[in-house]
């Protein structure tokens, strides 16, 4: 079974909800457990929120990925916002402190298996995360 690519434009906080709902549907279709689907939906929620908070608009792309002997889901969040000046700082872990984790990226990284980020000041940010089916 293969799942087509799903794109969700993120322009307002309403879109955050619809992006994570679609993510959960795709995760279920790909055979992820409901626990994993919750982790994926939560990660999408965080990524979409970053777009709304820092770039105002952007998009979330959700698609199936195939690796050697395994299948998974990829979520790409990209925007044309201001970009991140210090990626390393944005990824610094404020483990189990409060809800205000800044960009929340360390948390997203923990929710997923793979995490990649590219950002250019003034041009935008792209975050790609993947989770593989166990």
């Amino acid at each position: 079974m293969s799942v087509g690519e799903i794109r969700v434009a993120i322009n307002s906080d309403q879109d955050i909800v619809s992006a994570r709902q679609k993510g959960r549907v795709v995760a279920n279709e790909l055979g992820f457990s409901s626990g994993d689907a919750t982790l994926i939906a939560t990660a999408i929620s965080e990524l979409a929120r970053n777009i709304v908070s820092y770039a105002r608009k952007g998009q979330i792309t959700i698609r199936q990925v195939n690796g050697l002997n395994r299948r998974g889901i990829a979520v790409i969040a990209d925007d044309e916002g201001p970009g991140i000046a210090d990626i390393r700082q944005a990824l610094r872990d404020g483990f189990s402190t409060s809800g205000s984790l800044g960009l929340g990226l360390p948390g997203v990284r923990r929710l997923m298996d793979e995490f990649e980020i590219t950002s250019q000041l003034g041009k935008g940010t792209t975050v790609m995360v993947k989770k593989w089916r166990p």
């Binding site: 626990g35 982790l39 483990f95 189990s96 984790l101 360390p106 948390g107 923990r110």
Partner: peptide
């Protein structure tokens, strides 16, 4: 709070 949601929350550091 659902068990699965609780698990995701602590991964995010939301306690």
């Amino acid at each position: 709070i659902q068990p699965e949601v609780a698990f995701a929350m602590v991964q995010l550091g939301l306690t």
